[in-house]
Amino acid sequence: MTAGGKDTDDMVQATWLYHVGQMSQEEVSRRMGLSRFKVLRLLQDARDLGLVRISIEHGTTGTLARADRLIQHFGLTEAMVAPNTGDDAAAGRRGVGQLAASWLARIGREGPVTIGVGWGRTMAAMADALTGLRNPELCFVSLMGSMTHTSATSPFDVCVRLAALTGARAVFLPAPFLADSAEDAALIRRQRLVREALDVARAADHMVISVGECTADALLQSSGILTPDEAAGLIATGAVADTTGKFFAADGSLAATDLNLRAPSIELQDLHRSDVVVLSSGTGKAAALRAVLAAGFVNRLIVDEPLARALLQEEAA
């Protein structure tokens, strides 16, 4: 019988979907990415622990209901909402990171699994929160190039930490985050080691990424990846979001910027072929996240409660 921690989170989610969402065990299995046997065991444990009465006895039923609304509004396979922790941006990222770590522990427990990883502060928060997962058959692969210096938010560092925590293998993309030109990016992609890393990334079973906003104080600018002129030019094109080296307009289309040709990373069609999980927190990410959702490749969404409220209010307006 499960008694606490991540297994309890899985138990509550399975119970909610089955008893409140009126899903079949097969539908719960597909939603959560678990075998039907595991779902059956979680439901039995919930009954044994007294969770199932007239309602589900758990403090996060409000966020579960909000997650259901996100699924319906945006056509997602799964959504998870971290409870509101106030105006502290770091606390919001920690909450999303904890849920993301629970998701990662769930899908990474059994068998060979390849997981593509992006970069950013919520990705680092996921690595900070991950415990109790050991699987040498896991492989973490970076979906884009990296920066010239170490940082807890870079794809290289996120891969290293996740592999070290889980006993897994890590595959790095030996390339810069952005090349100086589209021609340089094409040349980099033709290198054997880059091709091999990209082949692993394109075949990933899951891709977990974050979303950046195209503003003057965004991480791309503050980290020095974009020059001030490049950042200003990007904003002038109407770009509002970036992820995995791609820049998006508000309607989900690729923005009219040559930066979309300068990242030696996975391509947009690669995201459409995988099971993509997006992590994001804070209401300031609402416009960027809506653009990425409109692009149509997101399967699962993990956000904090303020951002979930912003997304749903905008959708209803």
Rank of each mutant, 00 (worst) to 15 (best):
G116Y: 11
G282V: 08
E137K: 15
G108I: 03
A90R: 04
T148I: 07
H58V: 09
M147Q: 15
F297G: 00
T237V: 03
A231G: 14
S55C: 09
S265R: 14
D128T: 15
S181A: 10
G111Y: 15
R161A: 06
D68Q: 08
S146V: 07
N260Y: 08
R106I: 01
A218W: 06
L162Q: 03
L289P: 10
M1I: 11
L178I: 08
D199Y: 08
R41C: 00
S142K: 12
L311S: 11
V194C: 12
S35A: 12
L271Y: 09
L254H: 04
R169I: 11
T153P: 03
R53C: 09
A201H: 06
P174M: 05
F248K: 04
V303A: 01
S265C: 05
N260I: 03
T166E: 00
G132C: 10
L165R: 14
G145R: 12
W119Q: 06
S181R: 14
R161L: 01
P83N: 13
E213A: 11
E27N: 09
A125I: 02
G224C: 04
S253M: 13
A3M: 11
G108R: 04
F74P: 11
R189K: 15
S24C: 03
S274A: 05
R31L: 09
V171G: 01
W16R: 01
R169F: 06
H58R: 14
F248Q: 00
V28P: 06
G238A: 01
T150W: 14
D45V: 00
G75S: 02
V276G: 02
G50W: 00
C214T: 09
R202W: 04
R94C: 04
A288N: 09
Q44A: 13
A179H: 14
R262H: 11
A90L: 07
V200F: 03
L279T: 06
E213V: 15
D217S: 12
L99N: 00
T227N: 10
S151F: 12
R41Q: 05
A317D: 12
L130K: 06
T77H: 15
